[in-house]
Design a protein around this nucleic acid. Structure first.
Lengths: 136, 136
DNA sequence: TAATAGTCTATTAAATCGATAGGATAAAAA
DNA sequence: TTTTTATCCTATCGATTTAATAGACTATTA
């Protein structure tokens, strides 16, 4: 299941992608427009900023804005920043690999091979979808 | 992330698929072979039995066995029984649909359209993969 | 009737999630 | 220089879910 964090994050990014490029938008504006708790959204945007997707400006006229063109923000980046690994199981994760304690041999594991297929197909979608695809 | 419950369930089903068809296998046998807590596995196999995938036999010489040919057990069935919805978000789930509280219009929602793509590709894999594909 | 093996319900510990609170910091305007 | 505006950051909390465990019950076989 997708966390609310990720869901809200994608919605906020889409909102920003629809604005004039570079214009800061306040958290409160997005919060109201997308029905997201202000404080929760605050922490989500902070995460996205730390991951290099958003810039921010403090004080009057401040807010958040996209640092790149929406078509250059791939959903793999967004998903990894907000949701974590794309793979359903650590032992097939490219970026967060971890061996299963219970599994003596990955090469023979039925779960492993199944989850590699799922990972690849999901990765293809996220890799070929940009924020621009979602926003327009 | 895939729950241990599902991971163990798939491993157990694979184990059973590799046995001679119809021969009961004890929980303890699977538990030891696959490094799964006996009691936890017990509840997992019970779930699979209630979902019509396994039969069971009590007493000496008893155990669990597959009710169908492995090639007739699709991973969609297994996943839904153990993990629940295949979709990452209830508003794109075919079997567990639920409207998002925060979302005024699904047709315009960026998360919705993205998650439909993911659901379809995942569904295609699970729908075209049977237990037999994993076991041999 | 004793041993075997699945059935079922309840409980618990730990982790995660969603949300909230509240003060700190920086920028702009007065 | 002070006030206002808006982001930054850390801590905490309650609810839910997950993984696992305990223990008593039931059916089957020898």
């Amino acid at each position: 299941m997708l966390s609310n964090k990720t869901k809200y994050g994608i919605k906020a990014l889409t909102f920003l992608a629809r604005q004039e490029h570079g214009t800061p938008v306040q958290i409160a504006t997005i919060s109201k427009s997308e029905n997201i708790s202000l404080k929760f959204l605050e922490s989500i945007l902070l995460t996205l900023r730390k991951n290099g997707m958003l810039g921010s400006k403090k004080g009057k006229g401040g807010g958040y804005y996209l640092l790149k063109d929406p078509k250059d923000i791939k959903m793999t980046t967004v998903m990894r920043a907000l949701e974590g690994p794309i793979a359903m199981v650590p032992c097939v994760s490219l970026n967060y690999y971890e061996k299963c304690k219970d599994c003596p041999d990955e090469k023979v594991c039925s779960v492993h091979s199944l989850m590699i297929m799922v990972r690849d197909s999901t990765l293809e979608i996220f890799g070929n979808t940009s924020l621009a695809d979602l926003a327009y």
